[in-house]
Write a protein that binds this DNA or RNA. Sequence first.
DNA 1: GCCAGACGATAACATTTGTTATCAAATGAA
DNA 2: TTCATTTGATAACAAATGTTATCGTCTGGC
Lengths: 191, 191
Amino acid sequence: MFNQFRSKFPLSEEKWNQYMGYFNRIEVPAKTTLLEEGEISKKLFVIEKGCIRVWFNHNGKDLTSQFFFENQSVASIESFMKKFPSPVFVETIEPSVLWWIHKNDVDTIIEEIKEIPELRDRLIDMLFQRTFDYMKHFFSFIKDSPAQRYQSLIEEKPQIVQRVPQHYIASYLGVSTVHLSRIKSKLLREK
Amino acid sequence: MFNQFRSKFPLSEEKWNQYMGYFNRIEVPAKTTLLEEGEISKKLFVIEKGCIRVWFNHNGKDLTSQFFFENQSVASIESFMKKFPSPVFVETIEPSVLWWIHKNDVDTIIEEIKEIPELRDRLIDMLFQRTFDYMKHFFSFIKDSPAQRYQSLIEEKPQIVQRVPQHYIASYLGVSTVHLSRIKSKLLREK
DNA sequence: GCCAGACGATAACATTTGTTATCAAATGAA
DNA sequence: TTCATTTGATAACAAATGTTATCGTCTGGC
Protein backbone atom coordinates (compact mmCIF):
# COMPACT_ATOMS: atom_id res chain seq x y z
CA MET A 1 0.00 0.00 0.00
CA PHE A 2 2.53 2.60 1.08
CA ASN A 3 5.52 1.49 -0.96
CA GLN A 4 4.38 3.63 -3.87
CA PHE A 5 5.17 6.67 -1.67
CA ARG A 6 8.49 5.38 -0.34
CA SER A 7 10.67 7.38 -2.72
CA LYS A 8 9.01 10.65 -1.74
CA PHE A 9 10.25 10.55 1.83
CA PRO A 10 13.91 11.09 2.68
CA LEU A 11 13.82 8.72 5.67
CA SER A 12 16.13 5.97 6.76
CA GLU A 13 14.96 2.42 6.20
CA GLU A 14 14.53 2.05 9.97
CA LYS A 15 12.38 5.17 10.36
CA TRP A 16 10.30 4.23 7.37
CA ASN A 17 9.67 0.75 8.73
CA GLN A 18 8.92 2.15 12.19
CA TYR A 19 6.33 4.51 10.74
CA MET A 20 4.79 1.82 8.55
CA GLY A 21 4.47 -0.39 11.61
CA TYR A 22 2.07 2.14 13.11
CA PHE A 23 -0.57 1.40 10.46
CA ASN A 24 -3.34 -1.18 10.77
CA ARG A 25 -5.25 -2.63 7.84
CA ILE A 26 -9.02 -3.17 8.07
CA GLU A 27 -11.77 -4.13 5.67
CA VAL A 28 -15.22 -2.70 6.28
CA PRO A 29 -18.60 -2.90 4.52
CA ALA A 30 -20.43 0.05 3.01
CA LYS A 31 -22.14 2.47 5.40
CA THR A 32 -19.74 1.73 8.24
CA THR A 33 -19.42 4.61 10.69
CA LEU A 34 -15.75 5.28 11.41
CA LEU A 35 -16.31 8.26 13.68
CA GLU A 36 -19.45 9.44 15.48
CA GLU A 37 -20.46 13.04 15.97
CA GLY A 38 -19.41 14.15 19.46
CA GLU A 39 -16.61 11.62 19.66
CA ILE A 40 -12.98 12.76 19.86
CA SER A 41 -11.13 11.57 16.79
CA LYS A 42 -8.20 9.26 17.58
CA LYS A 43 -7.65 7.63 14.20
CA LEU A 44 -6.46 8.89 10.86
CA PHE A 45 -7.54 6.72 7.93
CA VAL A 46 -5.86 6.19 4.58
CA ILE A 47 -7.99 4.66 1.85
CA GLU A 48 -6.51 1.74 -0.08
CA LYS A 49 -9.80 0.93 -1.78
CA GLY A 50 -13.26 2.41 -1.45
CA CYS A 51 -14.76 5.76 -0.62
CA ILE A 52 -15.74 7.77 2.43
CA ARG A 53 -17.93 10.75 3.18
CA VAL A 54 -17.92 13.27 6.02
CA TRP A 55 -21.36 14.47 7.02
CA PHE A 56 -23.31 16.11 9.80
CA ASN A 57 -26.88 16.31 10.97
CA HIS A 58 -28.61 19.69 10.79
CA ASN A 59 -32.24 19.89 11.86
CA GLY A 60 -32.76 16.27 10.97
CA LYS A 61 -31.13 16.60 7.56
CA ASP A 62 -28.14 14.59 6.45
CA LEU A 63 -25.63 17.07 5.00
CA THR A 64 -22.43 15.86 3.35
CA SER A 65 -19.40 18.17 3.42
CA GLN A 66 -16.60 16.08 1.93
CA PHE A 67 -15.80 12.98 -0.12
CA PHE A 68 -12.59 10.93 -0.11
CA PHE A 69 -11.24 8.23 -2.42
CA GLU A 70 -8.23 5.95 -2.87
CA ASN A 71 -4.89 7.19 -1.47
CA GLN A 72 -6.44 10.09 0.40
CA SER A 73 -6.24 10.44 4.17
CA VAL A 74 -9.37 11.13 6.17
CA ALA A 75 -10.20 12.40 9.64
CA SER A 76 -12.45 14.89 11.31
CA ILE A 77 -9.51 17.20 11.00
CA GLU A 78 -10.38 19.73 13.71
CA SER A 79 -11.26 16.99 16.19
CA PHE A 80 -8.16 14.99 15.35
CA MET A 81 -5.75 17.91 15.64
CA LYS A 82 -7.25 19.72 18.61
CA LYS A 83 -9.05 16.97 20.52
CA PHE A 84 -12.42 18.65 20.15
CA PRO A 85 -15.62 16.60 20.01
CA SER A 86 -16.15 15.97 16.33
CA PRO A 87 -18.88 18.06 14.68
CA VAL A 88 -19.18 15.42 11.94
CA PHE A 89 -19.65 11.75 11.20
CA VAL A 90 -17.16 9.83 9.07
CA GLU A 91 -18.71 6.96 7.12
CA THR A 92 -17.82 4.61 4.27
CA ILE A 93 -19.91 4.79 1.13
CA GLU A 94 -18.54 1.68 -0.57
CA PRO A 95 -17.08 -1.47 0.98
CA SER A 96 -13.55 -0.30 1.75
CA VAL A 97 -10.02 -1.34 2.58
CA LEU A 98 -8.50 1.13 5.01
CA TRP A 99 -5.29 1.67 6.94
CA TRP A 100 -5.54 3.54 10.20
CA ILE A 101 -2.97 5.05 12.51
CA HIS A 102 -3.48 6.25 16.09
CA LYS A 103 -3.19 9.95 16.85
CA ASN A 104 -0.36 9.36 19.31
CA ASP A 105 1.70 7.84 16.53
CA VAL A 106 0.84 10.66 14.14
CA ASP A 107 2.00 13.13 16.78
CA THR A 108 5.27 11.25 17.09
CA ILE A 109 5.79 11.31 13.34
CA ILE A 110 4.93 15.01 13.03
CA GLU A 111 7.29 15.97 15.85
CA GLU A 112 10.11 14.13 14.12
CA ILE A 113 9.20 15.34 10.65
CA LYS A 114 9.29 18.97 11.75
CA GLU A 115 13.04 18.64 12.20
CA ILE A 116 13.53 17.55 8.59
CA PRO A 117 13.33 20.77 6.57
CA GLU A 118 12.13 19.15 3.38
CA LEU A 119 9.30 17.29 5.04
CA ARG A 120 8.39 20.16 7.32
CA ASP A 121 8.04 22.43 4.29
CA ARG A 122 5.94 19.81 2.58
CA LEU A 123 3.64 19.72 5.61
CA ILE A 124 3.25 23.49 5.54
CA ASP A 125 2.60 23.37 1.79
CA MET A 126 -0.12 20.79 2.34
CA LEU A 127 -1.82 23.04 4.87
CA PHE A 128 -1.71 25.95 2.45
CA GLN A 129 -3.03 23.80 -0.33
CA ARG A 130 -5.93 22.63 1.75
CA THR A 131 -6.81 26.21 2.59
CA PHE A 132 -6.74 27.09 -1.10
CA ASP A 133 -9.05 24.20 -1.87
CA TYR A 134 -11.58 25.37 0.68
CA MET A 135 -11.33 28.95 -0.61
CA LYS A 136 -12.06 27.74 -4.12
CA HIS A 137 -15.06 25.73 -2.96
CA PHE A 138 -16.36 28.72 -1.00
CA PHE A 139 -15.89 31.02 -4.01
CA SER A 140 -18.10 28.73 -6.08
CA PHE A 141 -20.97 29.38 -3.68
CA ILE A 142 -20.85 33.14 -4.20
CA LYS A 143 -20.22 33.11 -7.93
CA ASP A 144 -21.96 30.06 -9.40
CA SER A 145 -25.49 28.72 -9.60
CA PRO A 146 -26.08 25.15 -8.38
CA ALA A 147 -26.20 24.00 -12.02
CA GLN A 148 -22.77 25.54 -12.63
CA ARG A 149 -21.40 23.96 -9.45
CA TYR A 150 -22.62 20.59 -10.69
CA GLN A 151 -20.92 21.16 -14.05
CA SER A 152 -17.65 21.99 -12.30
CA LEU A 153 -17.97 18.85 -10.23
CA ILE A 154 -18.31 16.73 -13.36
CA GLU A 155 -15.22 18.35 -14.84
CA GLU A 156 -13.03 18.62 -11.77
CA LYS A 157 -14.07 15.72 -9.56
CA PRO A 158 -15.64 13.14 -11.87
CA GLN A 159 -15.10 10.41 -9.27
CA ILE A 160 -17.71 12.01 -7.06
CA VAL A 161 -20.35 12.05 -9.78
CA GLN A 162 -19.54 8.52 -10.85
CA ARG A 163 -19.26 6.74 -7.52
CA VAL A 164 -21.36 8.66 -4.99
CA PRO A 165 -25.16 8.30 -4.58
CA GLN A 166 -26.86 11.40 -5.85
CA HIS A 167 -28.60 12.43 -2.65
CA TYR A 168 -25.21 12.82 -0.96
CA ILE A 169 -23.99 15.02 -3.81
CA ALA A 170 -27.07 17.22 -3.51
CA SER A 171 -26.27 18.47 -0.01
CA TYR A 172 -22.59 18.83 -0.93
CA LEU A 173 -23.71 21.27 -3.64
CA GLY A 174 -26.15 22.96 -1.29
CA VAL A 175 -29.38 21.95 -3.07
CA SER A 176 -32.28 19.56 -2.49
CA THR A 177 -32.25 16.11 -4.07
CA VAL A 178 -35.20 17.07 -6.22
CA HIS A 179 -33.43 20.08 -7.60
CA LEU A 180 -30.25 18.17 -8.37
CA SER A 181 -32.36 15.69 -10.29
CA ARG A 182 -33.86 18.61 -12.24
CA ILE A 183 -30.38 19.97 -13.00
CA LYS A 184 -29.32 16.60 -14.39
CA SER A 185 -32.37 16.14 -16.58
CA LYS A 186 -32.02 19.67 -17.93
CA LEU A 187 -28.39 18.98 -18.83
CA LEU A 188 -29.46 15.84 -20.69
CA ARG A 189 -32.22 17.63 -22.58
CA GLU A 190 -29.84 20.38 -23.68
CA LYS A 191 -27.34 17.96 -25.21
CA MET B 1 1.95 49.80 16.09
CA PHE B 2 3.76 46.53 16.60
CA ASN B 3 4.96 47.00 20.17
CA GLN B 4 1.72 45.53 21.46
CA PHE B 5 2.86 42.20 19.98
CA ARG B 6 6.48 42.39 21.17
CA SER B 7 6.01 40.16 24.20
CA LYS B 8 4.53 37.37 22.08
CA PHE B 9 7.72 36.77 20.12
CA PRO B 10 10.77 35.18 21.71
CA LEU B 11 13.20 37.15 19.59
CA SER B 12 16.33 39.06 20.48
CA GLU B 13 16.10 42.82 20.51
CA GLU B 14 18.27 42.91 17.38
CA LYS B 15 16.12 40.48 15.41
CA TRP B 16 12.95 42.26 16.49
CA ASN B 17 14.31 45.61 15.39
CA GLN B 18 15.56 44.15 12.13
CA TYR B 19 12.10 42.73 11.35
CA MET B 20 10.35 45.93 12.35
CA GLY B 21 12.63 47.83 10.01
CA TYR B 22 11.16 45.91 7.08
CA PHE B 23 7.76 47.59 7.54
CA ASN B 24 6.65 50.79 5.81
CA ARG B 25 3.80 52.98 7.00
CA ILE B 26 1.35 54.48 4.50
CA GLU B 27 -1.91 56.37 4.72
CA VAL B 28 -4.42 55.88 1.91
CA PRO B 29 -7.94 57.16 1.18
CA ALA B 30 -11.02 54.96 0.90
CA LYS B 31 -11.40 52.86 -2.25
CA THR B 32 -7.67 52.67 -2.86
CA THR B 33 -6.67 49.59 -4.85
CA LEU B 34 -3.73 47.88 -3.14
CA LEU B 35 -3.51 44.96 -5.56
CA GLU B 36 -4.99 44.52 -9.03
CA GLU B 37 -6.38 41.29 -10.39
CA GLY B 38 -3.72 39.59 -12.54
CA GLU B 39 -0.87 41.24 -10.69
CA ILE B 40 1.59 39.15 -8.66
CA SER B 41 1.31 40.10 -5.01
CA LYS B 42 4.56 41.43 -3.54
CA LYS B 43 3.28 43.17 -0.43
CA LEU B 44 1.70 41.97 2.76
CA PHE B 45 -0.34 44.63 4.56
CA VAL B 46 -1.08 45.00 8.25
CA ILE B 47 -3.94 47.32 9.16
CA GLU B 48 -3.29 49.90 11.87
CA LYS B 49 -6.55 51.72 11.18
CA GLY B 50 -9.25 51.19 8.63
CA CYS B 51 -10.71 48.32 6.71
CA ILE B 52 -10.06 46.37 3.53
CA ARG B 53 -11.97 44.02 1.28
CA VAL B 54 -10.87 41.35 -1.16
CA TRP B 55 -13.07 41.02 -4.23
CA PHE B 56 -13.18 39.72 -7.76
CA ASN B 57 -15.11 40.39 -10.92
CA HIS B 58 -17.39 37.64 -12.20
CA ASN B 59 -19.43 38.32 -15.34
CA GLY B 60 -19.38 42.02 -14.61
CA LYS B 61 -20.43 41.58 -10.99
CA ASP B 62 -18.40 42.81 -8.05
CA LEU B 63 -18.16 39.89 -5.60
CA THR B 64 -16.55 40.34 -2.19
CA SER B 65 -14.91 37.30 -0.58
CA GLN B 66 -13.24 38.70 2.56
CA PHE B 67 -13.11 41.64 4.94
CA PHE B 68 -10.22 42.73 7.15
CA PHE B 69 -9.95 45.17 10.06
CA GLU B 70 -7.44 46.59 12.53
CA ASN B 71 -4.46 44.37 13.42
CA GLN B 72 -5.18 41.84 10.71
CA SER B 73 -2.75 41.08 7.90
CA VAL B 74 -3.96 41.07 4.33
CA ALA B 75 -2.73 39.75 1.01
CA SER B 76 -3.99 37.80 -1.94
CA ILE B 77 -2.67 34.82 -0.09
CA GLU B 78 -2.27 32.38 -2.97
CA SER B 79 -0.62 35.00 -5.16
CA PHE B 80 1.65 36.15 -2.37
CA MET B 81 2.79 32.67 -1.35
CA LYS B 82 3.09 31.07 -4.78
CA LYS B 83 3.73 34.02 -7.10
CA PHE B 84 0.58 33.33 -9.10
CA PRO B 85 -1.27 36.18 -10.82
CA SER B 86 -3.82 37.29 -8.24
CA PRO B 87 -7.40 36.18 -8.90
CA VAL B 88 -8.65 39.04 -6.73
CA PHE B 89 -8.46 42.76 -6.09
CA VAL B 90 -7.47 44.13 -2.68
CA GLU B 91 -9.04 47.49 -1.87
CA THR B 92 -9.55 49.77 1.11
CA ILE B 93 -13.11 50.46 2.20
CA GLU B 94 -12.33 53.24 4.70
CA PRO B 95 -9.44 55.72 4.73
CA SER B 96 -6.71 53.56 6.23
CA VAL B 97 -3.34 53.54 7.92
CA LEU B 98 -1.36 50.52 6.76
CA TRP B 99 2.04 48.96 7.25
CA TRP B 100 3.39 46.91 4.37
CA ILE B 101 6.33 44.56 4.08
CA HIS B 102 7.88 43.17 0.89
CA LYS B 103 7.56 39.48 0.12
CA ASN B 104 11.36 39.05 0.08
CA ASP B 105 11.49 40.21 3.67
CA VAL B 106 8.59 37.98 4.68
CA ASP B 107 10.44 35.03 3.15
CA THR B 108 13.52 35.92 5.16
CA ILE B 109 11.52 36.09 8.37
CA ILE B 110 9.70 32.82 7.71
CA GLU B 111 12.93 30.97 6.93
CA GLU B 112 14.38 32.15 10.22
CA ILE B 113 11.19 31.57 12.20
CA LYS B 114 10.97 27.97 11.03
CA GLU B 115 14.08 27.23 13.09
CA ILE B 116 12.45 28.49 16.29
CA PRO B 117 10.15 25.65 17.42
CA GLU B 118 7.70 27.86 19.27
CA LEU B 119 7.20 30.25 16.38
CA ARG B 120 7.19 27.52 13.78
CA ASP B 121 4.42 25.74 15.64
CA ARG B 122 2.51 28.99 15.89
CA LEU B 123 2.79 29.41 12.12
CA ILE B 124 1.44 25.91 11.56
CA ASP B 125 -1.37 26.57 14.03
CA MET B 126 -2.30 29.73 12.16
CA LEU B 127 -2.53 27.79 8.92
CA PHE B 128 -4.78 25.20 10.56
CA GLN B 129 -6.92 27.88 12.07
CA ARG B 130 -7.40 29.60 8.75
CA THR B 131 -8.47 26.32 7.20
CA PHE B 132 -11.00 25.80 9.99
CA ASP B 133 -12.38 29.28 9.41
CA TYR B 134 -12.92 28.59 5.74
CA MET B 135 -14.51 25.23 6.54
CA LYS B 136 -16.94 26.91 8.88
CA HIS B 137 -17.85 29.52 6.31
CA PHE B 138 -18.38 26.82 3.70
CA PHE B 139 -20.55 24.80 6.08
CA SER B 140 -22.84 27.79 6.51
CA PHE B 141 -23.59 27.71 2.78
CA ILE B 142 -24.85 24.14 2.88
CA LYS B 143 -26.75 24.35 6.16
CA ASP B 144 -28.12 27.89 6.50
CA SER B 145 -30.43 30.15 4.56
CA PRO B 146 -29.12 33.60 3.61
CA ALA B 147 -31.17 35.09 6.45
CA GLN B 148 -29.48 32.75 8.93
CA ARG B 149 -26.06 33.57 7.51
CA TYR B 150 -26.80 37.24 8.03
CA GLN B 151 -27.84 36.57 11.64
CA SER B 152 -24.58 34.70 12.26
CA LEU B 153 -22.66 37.60 10.77
CA ILE B 154 -24.31 40.03 13.18
CA GLU B 155 -23.42 37.78 16.10
CA GLU B 156 -19.96 36.62 15.09
CA LYS B 157 -18.53 39.46 13.05
CA PRO B 158 -20.43 42.59 14.08
CA GLN B 159 -17.67 44.80 12.69
CA ILE B 160 -18.60 43.75 9.19
CA VAL B 161 -22.26 44.69 9.61
CA GLN B 162 -21.38 47.97 11.31
CA ARG B 163 -18.61 49.27 9.08
CA VAL B 164 -19.07 47.75 5.64
CA PRO B 165 -21.47 49.09 2.97
CA GLN B 166 -24.36 46.71 2.56
CA HIS B 167 -23.88 45.87 -1.09
CA TYR B 168 -20.45 44.43 -0.32
CA ILE B 169 -21.94 42.26 2.42
CA ALA B 170 -24.59 40.95 0.03
CA SER B 171 -22.15 39.20 -2.28
CA TYR B 172 -20.16 37.95 0.70
CA LEU B 173 -23.34 36.18 1.84
CA GLY B 174 -24.10 35.01 -1.67
CA VAL B 175 -27.29 37.04 -2.23
CA SER B 176 -28.38 40.05 -4.25
CA THR B 177 -28.42 43.52 -2.68
CA VAL B 178 -32.18 43.62 -2.97
CA HIS B 179 -32.57 40.39 -1.11
CA LEU B 180 -30.23 41.41 1.69
CA SER B 181 -32.30 44.55 2.08
CA ARG B 182 -35.41 42.36 2.35
CA ILE B 183 -33.74 40.18 4.98
CA LYS B 184 -32.92 43.25 7.06
CA SER B 185 -36.39 44.74 6.88
CA LYS B 186 -37.95 41.38 7.77
CA LEU B 187 -35.68 41.16 10.83
CA LEU B 188 -36.80 44.62 11.89
CA ARG B 189 -40.48 43.85 11.41
CA GLU B 190 -40.20 40.67 13.48
CA LYS B 191 -38.69 42.43 16.48
C1' DG C 1 -36.71 -15.92 -6.44
C1' DC C 2 -38.66 -12.67 -3.27
C1' DC C 3 -39.03 -8.70 -0.58
C1' DA C 4 -37.80 -4.52 1.95
C1' DG C 5 -35.23 -0.68 1.62
C1' DA C 6 -32.44 2.51 -1.04
C1' DC C 7 -32.26 5.37 -4.86
C1' DG C 8 -33.78 8.48 -8.29
C1' DA C 9 -37.28 10.77 -11.55
C1' DT C 10 -41.19 13.61 -11.90
C1' DA C 11 -45.34 16.50 -11.00
C1' DA C 12 -47.75 20.12 -8.48
C1' DC C 13 -47.51 23.57 -5.66
C1' DA C 14 -45.27 26.89 -2.21
C1' DT C 15 -41.56 29.74 -1.09
C1' DT C 16 -37.36 31.99 -1.83
C1' DT C 17 -34.47 34.71 -4.44
C1' DG C 18 -33.12 37.46 -8.53
C1' DT C 19 -33.98 41.36 -11.85
C1' DT C 20 -35.24 45.74 -13.18
C1' DA C 21 -36.86 50.05 -12.17
C1' DT C 22 -37.75 53.95 -9.21
C1' DC C 23 -37.16 56.88 -5.37
C1' DA C 24 -35.07 58.93 -1.22
C1' DA C 25 -31.41 59.78 1.82
C1' DA C 26 -26.62 60.28 2.76
C1' DT C 27 -22.11 61.55 1.29
C1' DG C 28 -18.27 63.75 -0.76
C1' DA C 29 -15.98 66.94 -3.81
C1' DA C 30 -15.76 71.54 -5.91
C1' DT D 1 -23.68 75.56 -0.59
C1' DT D 2 -24.58 72.67 -4.71
C1' DC D 3 -24.49 68.83 -7.47
C1' DA D 4 -23.17 64.26 -8.78
C1' DT D 5 -22.36 59.87 -6.83
C1' DT D 6 -23.08 56.34 -3.63
C1' DT D 7 -25.96 53.79 -0.87
C1' DG D 8 -30.10 51.52 0.40
C1' DA D 9 -35.25 50.68 0.46
C1' DT D 10 -39.17 49.07 -2.01
C1' DA D 11 -42.45 47.36 -5.58
C1' DA D 12 -43.61 44.31 -9.37
C1' DC D 13 -42.61 40.66 -11.78
C1' DA D 14 -39.72 36.56 -13.33
C1' DA D 15 -36.93 32.72 -12.34
C1' DA D 16 -34.91 29.48 -9.29
C1' DT D 17 -35.36 26.36 -5.67
C1' DG D 18 -37.70 23.80 -1.90
C1' DT D 19 -41.44 20.60 -0.25
C1' DT D 20 -44.35 16.86 -0.43
C1' DA D 21 -46.08 13.07 -2.63
C1' DT D 22 -46.05 9.31 -5.92
C1' DC D 23 -44.03 5.96 -8.76
C1' DG D 24 -40.60 2.84 -10.84
C1' DT D 25 -36.19 0.64 -10.67
C1' DC D 26 -32.52 -1.43 -8.64
C1' DT D 27 -30.07 -3.93 -5.12
C1' DG D 28 -28.69 -6.76 -1.25
C1' DG D 29 -29.92 -10.15 2.00
C1' DC D 30 -32.57 -14.17 3.02
